[in-house]
Structures are given as structure tokens and as C-alpha cells.
């Protein structure tokens, strides 16, 4: 039995061209970002649903402000270098492309270590524990889910940087670099929403341990 007629000619007469495929890839990536937005908005919704109390209304844990501010700046700066890398490859400027990609990944790593070592308190002694009620749960869920995407973004950037080094992309055809850039900017944008939600909005509640 076979439900696909057996034919030995394995050439697709309607195969999409490269430019058609890139168009589809682009829409696919945007739909993926839309899908992810439902996850991140659900997390934001969770934050505003749980971080409330009858006296103060919307609240937040009183966390150290300076490190978070610095690491947010680092992440935003990485987006600048990502954009620089994309512009460079479209002008066939290999040197700028290579070091901009690496710089983006490096700044991403700094942000990641900032979250894990400083924010998660592994280095400085915990400000907020996993089991600290809704404060701990939401804080670790939001930073953790975002950090997971940062890790995926860094991996993607390093893969594309490596393939770029081998000369696989041209000024005209560098979809992989564009995909990297869209994803990285997207992950940054998510943090632009998460940072104020975690650190700035609401009445600060002091933590006691």
C-alpha cells in the first residue's frame, strides 16, 4: 500500500526559488515572534496578577537597582552591534561583520552572567530565594525564561558568525544573519518590557531574611 503515487522522478516542478523561500522564512520567523509574545505577555500578566497586596496595590520586591540598570544597558548595547553586523554583511564588510557578531555575543554573555551571578544572587548572596512566595516564583520565572532565550540567541549568533567566517553569506543573500538580528532584537525588546515590570513599577516591599 502506498498513499503517495510511486514515481521515480524526484524533482519538484514547483520547488520554491531561493528568494521565495527567504520570504517565507521571514514570515515564519515573525509568526514565531508573535507566538513567543503570547508567552512573554502571559508572564507579564502573571507578574501583575500576583504582585499585588490590598494595601499598596501593585508592588515589587526591593531589589538592588544599580546592577540591573547596568546589565540592561549592556543588553541594549548588544543590539546596536547586532545591527552593525547586519549592515556590514550587506555591504560585504567582512571584518566589521565578524567582530560585531562576536561583540554582540560577548555582551549577551555579560548580560547572562549578570542575571545568573548577580541578579540570581549566586555571587553576592541571595536577595530573593526560589521559594520566596510569589516574589521568588515570578522573578525566577521571568528572568529565567528570558535568559533561556538569550542563551538560544547567543548560540544562534555564534553559529552564524562561524558560518559567516567560512564565507557562506553574501551581500545579497544573508538570510541567516537577518534571522539572527530579528531574533536578537526581539529578545532585547522583551527585556525592555520585563525590566521595568520587575524593577521599577509598583511599591517596593522590603525583603527580610
Amino acid at each position: 500500500m502506498s498513499a503517495v503515487a510511486h514515481d521515480h522522478d524526484h524533482h519538484n516542478p514547483m520547488e520554491p526559488t531561493r528568494s521565495e523561500q527567504v520570504k517565507m522564512n521571514r514570515l515564519g520567523l515573525w509568526v514565531f515572534c508573535l507566538s513567543e509574545s503570547f508567552l512573554f505577555f502571559a508572564l507579564l500578566g502573571t507578574r501583575f496578577y500576583l504582585w499585588r497586596n490590598p494595601v499598596d496595590g501593585i508592588i515589587r520586591p526591593d531589589l538592588a537597582q544599580i546592577p540591573a540598570f547596568i546589565f540592561t544597558g549592556v543588553l541594549l548595547a548588544s543590539s546596536y552591534f547586532m545591527n552593525r553586523a547586519e549592515v556590514a554583511i550587506s555591504k560585504d564588510d567582512r571584518t566589521t561583520f565578524n567582530y560585531s557578531m562576536l561583540l554582540t555575543a560577548a555582551l549577551g554573555l555579560v548580560f547572562l552572567f549578570g542575571v545568573v551571578l548577580v541578579e540570581w544572587g549566586l555571587a553576592t548572596g541571595p536577595e530573593l530565594l526560589l521559594g520566596d512566595g510569589a516574589f521568588g516564583a515570578v522573578f525566577y520565572a521571568m528572568t529565567g525564561m528570558h535568559a533561556l532565550h538569550v542563551i538560544m540567541g547567543i548560540a544562534l549568533i555564534l553559529i552564524v558568525w562561524n558560518n559567516g567566517r567560512k564565507g557562506l553569506y553574501t551581500a545579497e543573500d544573508h538570510w541567516a544573519v537577518e534571522a539572527c538580528a530579528i531574533f536578537w532584537h526581539y529578545v532585547d525588546l522583551v527585556w525592555v518590557f520585563f525590566y521595568p515590570a520587575l524593577y521599577l513599577i509598583g511599591t517596593a516591599i522590603e525583603l527580610h531574611h
Binding site: 500576583l50 499585588r52 512566595g133 510569589a134 516564583a137 515570578v138 511599591t203 516591599i205
Partner: peptide, 26 residues
């Protein structure tokens, strides 16, 4: 992992401090 999304606060001291609890309706 013990992340408490759904457990309401019951400790009166924490409620006094304004600590938020989890919520099963979430």
C-alpha cells in the same frame, strides 16, 4: 523546584509586611 505560584501566603508576619502570595486562579 518549589516556585510557589499557586500557594497563598498564610504566615501573618509576611502578610503584615505586604508580601504577595501565589494564587490558584492564576
Amino acid at each position: 523546584l518549589g516556585l510557589e505560584f499557586f500557594t497563598p501566603v498564610t504566615d501573618p508576619a509576611l502578610i503584615e509586611l505586604g508580601f504577595p502570595g501565589g494564587d490558584p486562579t492564576l
